[in-house]
Write a protein that binds this DNA or RNA. Structure first.
Lengths: 193, 193
DNA sequence: ACTATTTTGTACCAATTAGTACAAAATATA
DNA sequence: TATATTTTGTACTAATTGGTACAAAATAGT
């Protein structure tokens, strides 16, 4: 009750912060850069988000892996979950340079902070593991239903998809070209028979 | 001719700089950190290496991908090149946490600098492409000799190995455990029949 | 011993870093 | 309208960033 009304839309400024952190990483994003794109004064910033690190944590949690979210939303009701997962990977090829250059937010964070801020790095790893868990679950389901004929351990298959995701997010920066990525992805998906 | 003798061994200080850049990345490695581990004064440093960026370039070129070098050395004389490449990947699983945490120097650089210093990023990409070229060449050779039965395009297969390398260098940070990595790598190598 | 040449040490620099102090402004309720 | 509550703007800080100026030190050749 009461108090001066805040002038910004929290969702919008978090989107702006996400975009910046995602493209530049944690350390390379300066506080002043953040304030500029978020349109906040220092006072409002620290009042609302506590610190750069806390904001980053909040942004990570919120982002929580854009891809995972879209995927997790579709899968429970999808008639052929594995086919949905295949589509998820195929979509990578045709996302533009704007996505290619940013790569995977969580993957980037792991690379940047493995030997830096361990708590942030661990947070990123946990998020990636959530995606791996998702893969593993639906691989199991698909094996039961007969959609997948492979007898390989779902744990290993999920780890394979996770590694494929991690790798593509670097390879797509080397070859940001649908024609180069499409056959690569199809080849990788051959494992999921 | 003449001149005060320099007090440091260039190879040794470059090794130190490499280690630091490899673990922390480009931006996160401060000049003072470098001077400390290299055991140089500022004057000597700038006299010998020009700038932080020039040193980084020199270190990249020299490192040029430790792995690629070892590989490129063995392959020309190896009786079964593809088997040597498989071994190259299998070795990843059992390298310790000290290697896991550092990942791939060039891959790290691509991730860090795609939206930062483009010239350094491009340099890293070129180095990775050299590894890809190596794969492609020997895949072609193995297909000719009959060591490889796959009819897949060597270009795509090489890109697949490259992506696998990129991916494993992140996955190994999530699961720095031989028991987790070994079956994953074997699964990935199934493509190379 | 003198000189040209090269390497080194010390002091300095402007810019940027994340973060704080504190009072003024703007609201809801009483 | 007074008050409690919350948000905001301005000014400031101490530390760190990559890099430079310049003279002293150490050598080889004359």
């Amino acid at each position: 009750m009461a108090g001066r009304p805040s002038i910004f839309d929290e969702e919008k400024v978090l989107d702006k912060a996400t975009e910046l952190f995602w493209t530049r990483g944690y350390e390379a994003t300066s506080l002043d850069d953040l304030l500029a794109v978020m349109g906040l004064g220092k006072s409002s910033f620290y009042h609302a988000f506590g610190s750069k690190k806390k904001l980053f944590e909040q942004v990570m949690d919120r982002f929580s892996n854009d891809a995972t979210h879209r995927l997790a939303g579709d899968l429970p009701t999808h008639p052929r979950p594995m086919e949905r997962i295949r589509e998820f990977f195929r979509e990578i090829a045709d996302s533009g340079w704007n996505k290619h250059k940013k790569g995977c937010f969580m993957g980037n964070t792991v690379v940047e902070l493995t030997n830096g801020d361990r708590s942030l790095c661990t947070r990123a790893i946990r998020r990636l593991e959530r995606m791996e868990d998702l893969f593993r679950h639906y691989i199991g389901v698909a094996q039961e239903s007969g959609e997948l004929r492979t007898k390989e351990d779902p744990v290993v298959l999920a780890r394979y998809l996770q590694t494929m995701w991690n790798g593509l997010n670097i390879t797509r920066r080397m070859h940001p070209d649908p024609a180069a990525l499409r056959p690569l992805i199809e080849l990788q998906l051959q494992i999921l028979k």
